[in-house]
Design a protein around this nucleic acid. Structure first.
Lengths: 176, 176
DNA sequence: TTTTCCATGTAACTCGTTACATGATTTC
DNA sequence: GAAATCATGTAACGAGTTACATGGAAAA
């Protein structure tokens, strides 16, 4: 549902074609969603069938024609519906990535530290990436800030965890 | 993949049957995953076909026989593989729930505040739920703590956002 | 001139959910 | 006696990904 919401939200600002939409999402929202091209095209087709958007073709020289989409009235209503639902509800954020934490005891401490450091590195990278995103007016900026806060909190927590494991390791190794 | 990882991780501790696995996950990990029964059964069948687990039937009176699963050697290896992968990589946590934030400008301020308060309520509820989870030995507890830290950070952030919107609203309404 | 970018799409697949079905047992 | 729990499953569906295909234009 959220992919549809993004497309509608962007189209609510201005008409855009599929490639453009995908491109914008990839370069400005990559930290919170990964929308594949084929999914974007598929979704736009679906929205058109449902009457939420309409197409107009734009020819640019010899290139494949751009299919520029715009919201219909029905689309605007649908957009508001999805937006309200999204804002009002908290979908237990899929923390797939953290599940392994529950089973940390099943890898030895050196390995654990090294694996978690790799993870740390990636989160750090993600955080850096959010800094490359150009500034946007209005609420869009909130999303980016939210992501930054989240990533920073993840990083802090990970640091503490790694410290704990290192200390445990010292204790265990001096005891044996 | 993470559902498979959980099943393997639990089976690595002790043999369990499908219902029991599902039940444990539902009551102890509901804050980070929602594994449906049919998915659990399906996954266990799949793991068996792949040789990662074996079954033994246990009859209890007239009930449908319990299918108790245990890890094979191959299963243990597979488990370690998935666990390493999970620990070392950060899958940009699916923040589907927050996407709407980017489009907050498209709802009027009173509505926004009210929607976000509903969201706040739900996160708060989630946080309370983590407190009902019984204590677990070892690393399992880290997962719960991680979730709590995350939820708290979400709550803090939301509070600030709601405040900002309220202030904006005041400014806008006195100006007009 | 080779690579990257622009611009679209299709077919097959995977993962997971929904909705259904069964039937004994325990609890209220 | 009704409702919840125990215990399993199947069939159909849905969302999204992967891998592929096409071909001109711009940049390296």
């Amino acid at each position: 549902m959220e992919r549809e919401l993004i497309l509608l939200g962007l189209l609510n600002r201005q008409q855009m074609h599929g490639y453009e939409l995908h491109d914008f999402i990839e370069s400005n929202m990559q930290m919170c969603i990964d929308l594949k091209k084929s999914t974007a095209y598929y979704l736009l087709e679906k929205l058109e069938k449902q009457g939420h958007v309409t197409q107009t073709e734009e020819q640019q020289g010899n290139r494949p024609p751009r299919r520029v989409y715009h919201l219909t009235e029905s689309g605007k209503a649908h957009y508001q519906e999805l937006l309200h639902k999204n804002l009002s509800s908290y979908l237990p954020a899929r923390f797939g990535g953290s599940i392994g934490i529950a089973f940390l005891d099943d890898v030895d401490e050196e390995t654990a530290v090294s694996l978690l450091q790799q993870r740390h590195q990636q989160i750090s990278q993600s955080l850096d990436n959010t800094k490359k995103i150009p500034n946007h007016p209005g609420a869009f900026q909130y999303l980016i800030e939210h992501q930054r806060v989240h990533l920073q909190s993840e990083l802090d927590w990970l640091d503490k965890l790694i410290q704990k494991i290192k200390i445990n390791h010292l204790i265990n190794s001096t005891n044996s």
